[in-house]
Simulated scan of single mutants.
Amino acid sequence: MKRIRVFAIASAVALGGVISGCANTPNKLSNEKVSVTTYASAQSEFFPKRRSVGMGETKVRNTGEIETATYPLMGVRSCNTPRTACSVGVVKLVSTTELKGFDAGGATLAISLTYDLGRKQTMSDGFTTVTEEIPADVTSILQGHHVFAKQVYLPFGEMRKVSFEHGVDFVVCVNHADEHNMPTDARCEVDGIQSGTVSHDSLPVL
Protein backbone atom coordinates (compact mmCIF):
# COMPACT_ATOMS: atom_id res chain seq x y z
CA MET A 1 0.00 0.00 0.00
CA LYS A 2 1.29 3.45 -0.86
CA ARG A 3 2.35 5.67 2.02
CA ILE A 4 2.68 9.38 1.45
CA ARG A 5 4.67 11.84 3.50
CA VAL A 6 3.57 15.43 3.15
CA PHE A 7 5.80 18.25 4.34
CA ALA A 8 4.23 21.70 4.42
CA ILE A 9 5.30 25.14 5.53
CA ALA A 10 2.08 26.81 6.68
CA SER A 11 -0.98 25.18 5.08
CA ALA A 12 -1.71 23.37 1.83
CA VAL A 13 -2.34 25.76 -0.99
CA ALA A 14 -3.57 25.85 -4.58
CA LEU A 15 -1.34 28.25 -6.40
CA GLY A 16 -2.71 30.44 -9.14
CA GLY A 17 -2.27 33.68 -10.98
CA VAL A 18 -4.07 35.60 -13.63
CA ILE A 19 -3.09 35.67 -17.29
CA SER A 20 -4.19 37.50 -20.34
CA GLY A 21 -3.66 37.78 -24.07
CA CYS A 22 -3.83 40.10 -27.03
CA ALA A 23 -6.91 40.24 -29.20
CA ASN A 24 -6.62 41.11 -32.82
CA THR A 25 -9.80 39.44 -34.05
CA PRO A 26 -11.45 41.87 -36.47
CA ASN A 27 -15.01 41.05 -35.34
CA LYS A 28 -14.20 41.13 -31.61
CA LEU A 29 -17.22 42.28 -29.56
CA SER A 30 -15.81 45.17 -27.53
CA ASN A 31 -18.78 45.44 -25.16
CA GLU A 32 -19.01 41.75 -24.23
CA LYS A 33 -17.22 39.99 -21.38
CA VAL A 34 -15.80 36.47 -21.54
CA SER A 35 -15.80 34.00 -18.66
CA VAL A 36 -13.04 31.36 -18.72
CA THR A 37 -13.29 28.19 -16.61
CA THR A 38 -10.34 25.85 -16.07
CA TYR A 39 -10.31 22.64 -14.04
CA ALA A 40 -7.64 19.98 -13.46
CA SER A 41 -7.99 16.74 -11.53
CA ALA A 42 -6.81 13.17 -11.17
CA GLN A 43 -8.85 10.00 -11.40
CA SER A 44 -9.70 8.56 -7.98
CA GLU A 45 -7.43 5.63 -7.13
CA PHE A 46 -10.31 3.71 -5.55
CA PHE A 47 -13.53 4.95 -7.24
CA PRO A 48 -13.37 4.62 -11.04
CA LYS A 49 -16.21 7.08 -11.73
CA ARG A 50 -15.01 9.87 -9.43
CA ARG A 51 -12.18 12.38 -9.39
CA SER A 52 -9.88 12.74 -6.38
CA VAL A 53 -7.69 15.83 -6.07
CA GLY A 54 -8.79 18.73 -8.23
CA MET A 55 -9.04 22.51 -8.52
CA GLY A 56 -11.21 24.71 -10.68
CA GLU A 57 -11.36 28.43 -11.37
CA THR A 58 -13.78 30.69 -13.24
CA LYS A 59 -12.78 34.26 -14.06
CA VAL A 60 -13.89 36.99 -16.40
CA ARG A 61 -11.04 37.77 -18.78
CA ASN A 62 -10.09 40.71 -20.89
CA THR A 63 -8.03 40.35 -24.01
CA GLY A 64 -4.39 40.79 -23.12
CA GLU A 65 -4.89 39.02 -19.76
CA ILE A 66 -2.98 35.85 -18.76
CA GLU A 67 -3.72 33.24 -16.10
CA THR A 68 -1.20 30.81 -14.60
CA ALA A 69 -2.20 28.12 -12.11
CA THR A 70 -0.37 25.34 -10.27
CA TYR A 71 -2.85 22.66 -9.27
CA PRO A 72 -2.83 20.65 -6.02
CA LEU A 73 -0.26 17.84 -6.13
CA MET A 74 -1.93 14.63 -7.31
CA GLY A 75 -1.07 11.09 -6.29
CA VAL A 76 -1.54 8.54 -9.09
CA ARG A 77 -0.99 4.81 -9.51
CA SER A 78 -0.87 2.16 -12.20
CA CYS A 79 -1.67 -1.47 -11.34
CA ASN A 80 -1.72 -4.80 -13.10
CA THR A 81 -5.13 -6.36 -13.88
CA PRO A 82 -5.53 -8.30 -10.61
CA ARG A 83 -4.18 -5.24 -8.72
CA THR A 84 -1.56 -7.34 -7.02
CA ALA A 85 1.26 -4.97 -8.02
CA CYS A 86 1.11 -1.19 -8.43
CA SER A 87 3.46 1.65 -9.29
CA VAL A 88 2.84 5.07 -7.76
CA GLY A 89 3.89 8.67 -8.29
CA VAL A 90 3.06 12.32 -7.67
CA VAL A 91 1.94 14.69 -10.45
CA LYS A 92 2.52 18.44 -10.60
CA LEU A 93 0.44 20.16 -13.30
CA VAL A 94 0.87 23.83 -14.29
CA SER A 95 -1.37 25.65 -16.78
CA THR A 96 -1.05 28.97 -18.58
CA THR A 97 -4.01 30.31 -20.57
CA GLU A 98 -4.14 33.51 -22.57
CA LEU A 99 -7.27 35.07 -24.05
CA LYS A 100 -6.35 36.08 -27.59
CA GLY A 101 -9.75 37.34 -28.78
CA PHE A 102 -13.43 36.45 -29.17
CA ASP A 103 -16.43 36.85 -31.44
CA ALA A 104 -20.15 36.11 -31.26
CA GLY A 105 -19.64 32.34 -31.22
CA GLY A 106 -16.64 31.73 -29.00
CA ALA A 107 -13.15 32.71 -27.89
CA THR A 108 -9.57 31.96 -28.91
CA LEU A 109 -7.20 30.81 -26.15
CA ALA A 110 -3.50 30.02 -26.14
CA ILE A 111 -3.06 27.11 -23.73
CA SER A 112 0.20 25.76 -22.30
CA LEU A 113 0.34 22.81 -19.87
CA THR A 114 3.31 21.20 -18.10
CA TYR A 115 2.91 17.73 -16.56
CA ASP A 116 5.62 16.37 -14.24
CA LEU A 117 5.40 12.91 -12.63
CA GLY A 118 7.88 11.43 -10.17
CA ARG A 119 8.63 10.39 -6.60
CA LYS A 120 8.56 13.93 -5.18
CA GLN A 121 6.93 17.21 -6.16
CA THR A 122 6.95 20.66 -4.54
CA MET A 123 4.75 23.69 -5.13
CA SER A 124 5.28 27.17 -3.72
CA ASP A 125 3.90 30.70 -4.08
CA GLY A 126 6.80 32.39 -2.30
CA PHE A 127 5.00 32.31 1.04
CA THR A 128 3.76 28.73 1.39
CA THR A 129 5.49 25.53 0.27
CA VAL A 130 3.90 22.10 -0.01
CA THR A 131 5.86 18.91 -0.73
CA GLU A 132 4.48 15.46 -1.39
CA GLU A 133 6.88 12.51 -1.56
CA ILE A 134 6.62 8.74 -1.94
CA PRO A 135 8.61 7.03 0.86
CA ALA A 136 12.05 5.69 -0.05
CA ASP A 137 11.08 2.08 0.68
CA VAL A 138 8.56 2.16 -2.21
CA THR A 139 10.63 1.10 -5.21
CA SER A 140 8.09 1.05 -8.07
CA ILE A 141 7.81 4.72 -9.02
CA LEU A 142 6.03 6.26 -12.03
CA GLN A 143 7.92 8.94 -13.93
CA GLY A 144 7.06 11.20 -16.85
CA HIS A 145 7.19 14.70 -18.31
CA HIS A 146 4.89 16.15 -20.98
CA VAL A 147 4.27 19.62 -22.41
CA PHE A 148 1.11 20.63 -24.28
CA ALA A 149 0.90 23.94 -26.17
CA LYS A 150 -1.87 24.94 -28.56
CA GLN A 151 -3.92 27.93 -29.68
CA VAL A 152 -7.57 26.93 -30.04
CA TYR A 153 -10.95 28.44 -30.83
CA LEU A 154 -13.55 27.33 -28.27
CA PRO A 155 -17.30 27.68 -28.89
CA PHE A 156 -19.12 29.25 -25.95
CA GLY A 157 -20.46 26.71 -23.45
CA GLU A 158 -18.60 23.67 -24.82
CA MET A 159 -16.05 21.93 -22.58
CA ARG A 160 -12.79 20.61 -24.01
CA LYS A 161 -10.14 18.46 -22.31
CA VAL A 162 -6.45 17.56 -22.44
CA SER A 163 -5.68 14.11 -21.03
CA PHE A 164 -2.35 13.00 -19.60
CA GLU A 165 -1.06 9.66 -18.33
CA HIS A 166 -2.55 7.92 -15.29
CA GLY A 167 -5.91 9.70 -15.26
CA VAL A 168 -4.86 13.35 -15.02
CA ASP A 169 -7.06 15.71 -17.06
CA PHE A 170 -7.28 19.44 -17.75
CA VAL A 171 -10.67 20.90 -18.76
CA VAL A 172 -11.34 24.35 -20.22
CA CYS A 173 -14.59 26.12 -21.14
CA VAL A 174 -15.52 29.67 -22.19
CA ASN A 175 -18.85 31.43 -21.78
CA HIS A 176 -20.54 34.80 -21.93
CA ALA A 177 -20.44 36.86 -18.73
CA ASP A 178 -23.04 39.27 -17.38
CA GLU A 179 -22.70 42.73 -15.83
CA HIS A 180 -21.92 41.11 -12.47
CA ASN A 181 -18.92 39.24 -13.93
CA MET A 182 -20.74 35.91 -13.65
CA PRO A 183 -21.28 33.29 -16.39
CA THR A 184 -24.65 33.77 -18.03
CA ASP A 185 -25.53 30.06 -17.66
CA ALA A 186 -24.26 26.79 -16.13
CA ARG A 187 -22.79 25.14 -19.22
CA CYS A 188 -19.19 25.49 -17.97
CA GLU A 189 -19.81 24.30 -14.40
CA VAL A 190 -17.52 21.39 -13.41
CA ASP A 191 -19.53 19.97 -10.48
CA GLY A 192 -20.69 17.04 -12.59
CA ILE A 193 -17.12 16.14 -13.55
CA GLN A 194 -15.97 16.25 -9.96
CA SER A 195 -18.85 14.07 -8.71
CA GLY A 196 -18.64 11.60 -11.58
CA THR A 197 -22.08 12.31 -13.06
CA VAL A 198 -20.33 13.71 -16.15
CA SER A 199 -17.71 11.37 -17.59
CA HIS A 200 -14.37 12.71 -18.79
CA ASP A 201 -14.67 10.23 -21.66
CA SER A 202 -17.64 12.20 -23.01
CA LEU A 203 -15.65 15.45 -23.36
CA PRO A 204 -14.08 16.30 -26.76
CA VAL A 205 -10.31 16.68 -26.77
CA LEU A 206 -8.49 19.88 -27.69
Score class of each variant (00 low, 15 high):
A107I: 04
R51G: 01
G157L: 03
T63L: 07
V13Y: 05
G75T: 11
R3N: 06
M55I: 01
T25R: 14
L142E: 09
E67G: 01
C79H: 05
A8V: 12
D178I: 12
E65I: 15
F102I: 00
T37L: 03
H200E: 03
N80S: 13
E45N: 14
T184V: 13
N24G: 00
D137R: 07
T96W: 00
T108M: 14
V53N: 13
M1F: 06
D178R: 08
P26A: 01
S35D: 01
C22Q: 10
T70N: 09
V198Q: 14
H176V: 00
L142W: 05
S199P: 00
H180L: 07
E132D: 14
A14F: 07
G17C: 02
F170Y: 15
R51L: 09
V94I: 14
I4M: 12
V162I: 13
S87Y: 10
P72Y: 08
S163L: 07
R3Y: 04
N31S: 10
A104G: 02
A110H: 14
L93C: 02
L99V: 03
H146W: 06
S78F: 03
V60M: 10
D178K: 08
Q143Y: 02
L206R: 04
L109A: 11
E158C: 03
A8I: 12
T131K: 09
H166T: 05
G54W: 09
P72W: 06
V172F: 14
P72N: 13
Y153T: 14
